[in-house]
Design a protein around this nucleic acid. Structure first.
Lengths: 209, 209
DNA sequence: AATAATTAATCAAACGTTTGTTTAGTTTTA
DNA sequence: TAAAACTAAACAAACGTTTGATTAATTATT
């Protein structure tokens, strides 16, 4: 879908306010005001608030799919190295699209079969299948051990990153990082998360001693 | 606070619907209907919807504090064993109070200084301090290694459990557990999460080979 | 190239619902 | 019989959406 400037302004404002206040908590009036457009333009362009939410998803999910497919093909990289690249990719995506990820977290708490729930489900399933394949490759080559619960492992990846991002201010407080600028802090967290998760994954996947 | 039967019915219904639809998504009419009480009873007993939410928190957080304080005192248990007990305690609490934890997850996405945000913050801070102390004890005794990021470690605990509980149906689907009863599944997840997290924590905390 | 016709974009105002809360009255309890 | 518990109805405010009018931009016609 191609959007003009005004439509993109609405989508960006919607993303921001949906992330902050939730779908029901963010009124179309607030979104219109934030985007500096007339209230009626939202219905005019997107049809409804619900459809606007779908547009936000459509706009963001296109870029969000992990680059696993291409990565798996590459024969010049070891499988553990591939996993490490994947971790960094995931951490980066989450940090740089925090608001959208917050919407996703919220949406997953609703156990209804909305069109958005279907989009999220498909996205997760595709990623999971790719990663399962990657783990199997590592097991065949002898790099990884047997009996790995990939779902559980991915929950640790996704869960840890989600938690840190959701509780940023708490993390800052606990580690006396309140004076860091936003960019400094992002860099710090990125590095910390990366090494933390790589260590965990190494311990889950290999028989390192 | 002491609540009568009707008040408890309201609190329970509110917990359920807040977890499912969020604060704004759950109307007081829905809550009243679910609790089989007249709409006006909510204002009558709790004053407002906001105060009802606070009552839900007050009612649940009293039981939720991890039993770390007592645990730390106990000299008959090793520190790694204490950590393992803590993990089981946390997993159990999360599984048996899923709805309340979903509300907490949602509430943490809102970056506003609501009374509830303050309650959550205090709860987390107290737990974090206790666990930091526990880790330090383990380091002094030589059981644990140095340079442990406790915040990051706790993010992995909380994040992994949250993620699995939030995405239960996805976890079931990925592991072909759709036919399990709710209780069987809870037992299964409990065991899986427990061993998974204990392995991770052992690897984070000790120099095991 | 100038004008008419058509479409798209924009807006303030109003629509009908639903929202949380209150009222004023009734029933129950002690 | 006074206080507490309870209710149906009404309240104003906020909600998402639609309307009808107006302006800007594009296309068609002469």
């Amino acid at each position: 879908m191609e959007y003009n400037e005004k439509q993109l302004a609405i989508i960006n404002s919607a993303e921001k306010l949906f992330a902050l206040n939730g779908f029901d908590g963010a009124s179309v009036r607030d979104i219109a005001h934030e985007a500096c457009v007339n209230l009626a333009m939202i219905s005019y362009y997107f049809g409804s608030k619900e459809k606007l939410m779908e547009a936000v998803f459509e706009q963001r999910t296109t870029k969000i799919r992990l680059k696993v497919e291409n990565l798996i093909q590459d024969t010049s990289i070891g499988n553990l190295e591939k996993v490490n690249i994947l971790i960094d990719d995931y951490v980066d995506k989450f940090i740089h699209q925090q608001e959208f990820h917050k919407i996703m977290l919220r949406e997953q708490l609703i156990e209804k079969n909305t069109p958005i729930a279907a989009l999220i489900h498909e996205l997760k399933k595709k990623n999971m299948e790719s990663i399962k394949k990657l783990v199997m490759d590592g097991q065949k080559s002898g790099e990884f051990k047997k009996n790995i619960d990939v779902t559980l492992m991915m929950s640790t990846l996704v869960g840890t990153v989600s938690n840190i991002i959701t509780c940023q201010s708490f993390y800052r407080e606990m580690n006396n990082l309140e004076n860091m600028t936003e960019i400094e802090f992002q860099k710090h967290v990125r590095k910390k998360l990366s090494t933390h998760l790589k260590n965990i994954f190494k311990s889950i996947l290999t028989n390192e001693g």
